[in-house]
């Protein structure tokens, strides 16, 4: 587990259709402590996914700095695990081999990485699906695999890009609860991108509201853990925080 520091991050690119320079991220600074869960929320076009792509190393930044555990980020790397909105499982690999992919890249022998993969699959209640191919699974199950695949590689920082946006509402709540449970067990440093205000508050230690490529507010969430929806929905703090964040996002 390591900290994530984002300093004066900036991204501008040339839009060939409009023929102008577009600023996606204007000036974002954000620190995430070791083992802290931070949600970044904002309306579409606020630059939140661009930030994640730069932290992951998929996109070069045009300004500023990103550090993981003090070391500057250069390109994609196994120190930052990514969970994608569209799952991004390898369709030609079984669930077991998808989850064992990271350890395989580290040179872990087959028997040992299968053991690791099975351990993480059990954590998400997926032991029965180990030998299946991703296209045989429902969306919710595919994303469980996506999450444990990132976790099984034991990253310093976990980056999640609207991971539950493409599953149905019931499954989404289950996945959110599972994620908080697993997070409490493993205590990863998490950067979680979402446009869903309730989700952002439910999961995080801090909610960062983004607007037009800038950090608008940074709000601590002190709800007790473990969190389950049945209790949290009734919680006065949760209601107040959600309303507050929603108000800011809509004004953004």
């Amino acid at each position: 587990m390591k900290s994530l520091e984002i300093r004066n991050l900036q991204k501008t690119y040339f839009d060939p259709y409009a023929g102008t320079k577009v600023t996606a991220v204007q000036d974002v600074s954000l620190d995430i402590r070791e083992g802290e869960f931070v949600s970044v929320v904002g309306p579409s076009g606020c630059g939140k996914t661009t930030i994640l792509n730069m932290v992951a190393g998929f996109l070069p930044a045009t300004g500023g700095e990103i550090r993981v555990g003090g070391r500057p980020v250069k390109g994609p790397g196994a120190d930052r695990g990514v969970v994608f909105q569209s799952f991004a499982l390898f369709p030609w690999k079984t669930v077991l081999d998808n989850v064992g992919f990271g350890p395989k890249m580290r040179g872990v022998p087959k028997a040992e990485r299968d053991r690791i993969a099975r351990e993480y699959l059990a954590l998400a209640g997926l032991s029965h699906a180990a030998d299946r191919y991703p296209n045989e699974l429902s969306g919710g199950m595919q994303q469980r695999v996506g999450v444990v695949r990132a976790l099984a590689n034991d990253p310093d920082v976990l980056l999640m890009d609207e991971p539950f946006a493409s599953v149905d509402a019931q499954t989404r709540m289950t996945l959110q609860e599972e994620l908080t449970r697993i997070w409490q067990e493993k205590q990863h440093t998490v950067l979680f991108i979402t446009h869903d205000v309730g989700e952002a508050v439910f999961l995080a230690d801090r909610v960062v509201v983004l607007s037009k490529g800038r950090v608008m507010r940074d709000i601590p969430v002190t709800l007790p853990r473990p969190r389950v929806w049945d209790e949290v929905t009734e919680d006065e703090d949760f209601k107040r925080l959600s309303a507050e964040v929603l108000h800011m996002v809509r004004a953004a």
């Binding site: 994609p76 992919f101 890249m105």
Partner: peptide, 26 residues
């Protein structure tokens, strides 16, 4: 899909693994 190459890279795949684990089977 680019996201599969991204996924592999963020799981630690180098150039060679990208070729044998992603590009060829894909």
């Amino acid at each position: 899909p680019m996201r599969l190459r991204h996924a592999a890279a963020s799981l630690g795949a180098g150039r060679r693994a990208m070729l044998t684990e992603v590009l060829l089977p894909g």
